[in-house]
Design a protein around this nucleic acid. Structure first.
Lengths: 227, 227
DNA sequence: TTTCAATCTTTAATCAACCTTAAAGTGCTA
DNA sequence: TAGCACTTTAAGGTTGATTAAAGATTGAAA
């Protein structure tokens, strides 16, 4: 997750860079509005934190110009003022959120997580669905309500990873086959079915309320059995 | 732009509904958390404004459960508390923004505009007709005015997808047969009729005002019963 | 009003979609 | 090289969407 930080005050900038890096964000720092706008336009950032008062061009203007150019990167505006009209101007200029100095780092981080959620669907490397938690780095599936865990094979892991990443949607065999095996071969669709069967056994083993349901003619979906 | 408002306090709710309607939003109001979650799950809203303190289920929990089910509708959390940890919890539960009571309407409206801008890009491939919303990735038909949903089979889905995509036109049996079954065979036209019958049942089930009408000698068309 | 073709609905049989199991294959590690 | 974990193939079983057929209903024209 790469963040653009635009802040001219040196001490504040240094503190923020340190804080964000500690939170595992990649941070680039710009000290004026014009460079911030140029950087934003590169499109490589997942989010931007803009100070309002900056030399060259203020934060509102940066946001407005960026939006005008069709750049949708989420922007958090940072300011010393706390007058209502500044908030309104900040948000209407195209910012997605607004934070008044002084602020607590905890709140800044929470707002960044909220902004970042849409670009990345998982926070700490573990995906959740219903009472399930999938740890991809350990290839382990855990049911929160029973405490049971199982080890998953590579294919099973990919299936759940993909389905957890597309919650609420019906995944077709084609999508799954391409994602997991990387080819489209009708003869191999049975593999998807076989692995669905294996994966279902593991879901049952950990005692989860979540089940993989087949939707005839369309594909598979995750379903939570209502309690 | 359709907004879901979840607020149990009657006077506040009435004031907000009035304010939002004045701003040309379509507003639906729910008075408790459980109904709010159910409404959110229909997927027809562009944004949601949730009060934190509500009977049945609080706003945080509604947000958390909705996110867990893959619902991405932007959420603005509303609360009387202003403690930092509540803000953090609010944002981490899946809310996109957070506003503390009492607030000025100007700020609420600015924050909604910011959220609304974002929801435009979240728009999934759901087709609309009258009070109906057809989500092709979930194979689900939802009636906005009743909140009811049904699961559609493959053929039913194709029929509605095709008809929603050709609003106002009369679709011939031939067009439908070719589009859905991929052949031109007079003997099979009865299949179209059978599936029209099935599909009509689903329209009735969700309580929609939209109906499929047969036009003698020509084909079928969508019609909205006037209220 | 009567007639008849168009359209509607229901249902039972059918068949493709889906499930599961078992056995054979692969590749890694001891 | 044997054992293990995972993957693929194959085959038979189950399920429910689809089909086809038959009778009911509707509406336009005579």
């Amino acid at each position: 997750m790469r963040i653009l930080l635009a802040e001219d005050e040196k001490r504040m900038a240094a503190a923020l860079v340190a804080l964000l890096k500690q939170e595992k964000y990649d941070v680039d720092h710009m000290a004026d509005g014009a460079s911030a706008l140029a950087a934003l336009e590169s499109g490589v950032y997942d989010m931007a934190v803009l100070d309002v008062m900056m030399p060259e061009m203020n934060g509102f203007e940066v946001a407005r110009r960026a939006r005008n150019k069709g750049i949708k990167t989420p922007i958090l505006m940072l300011t010393a003022k706390s007058q209502l009209d500044d908030k309104v101007e900040g948000l209407d200029s195209g910012a997605d959120d607004y934070l008044t100095k002084p602020f607590q780092t905890k709140e800044l981080l929470a707002r960044l997580r909220a902004l970042g959620r849409r670009s990345a669907s998982f926070q700490d490397g573990s995906l959740k669905y219903g009472d399930l938690s999938l740890d991809t780095s350990k290839a382990t599936l855990t049911c929160v309500s029973t405490g049971q865990s199982v080890r998953l094979g590579e294919k099973e892991l990919h299936i759940l990873e993909y389905m957890f990443g597309n919650k609420g949607q019906i995944m077709t065999r084609e999508q799954l086959a391409v994602k997991i095996w990387g080819f489209e071969n009708e003869a191999e669709y049975n593999n998807v079915e076989v692995y669905m069967s294996f994966t279902r056994k593991k879901l049952a083993f950990v005692g989860s309320k979540v089940a993989i349901k087949a939707v005839r003619g369309l594909g598979y979906e995750l379903r939570e059995r209502n309690v």
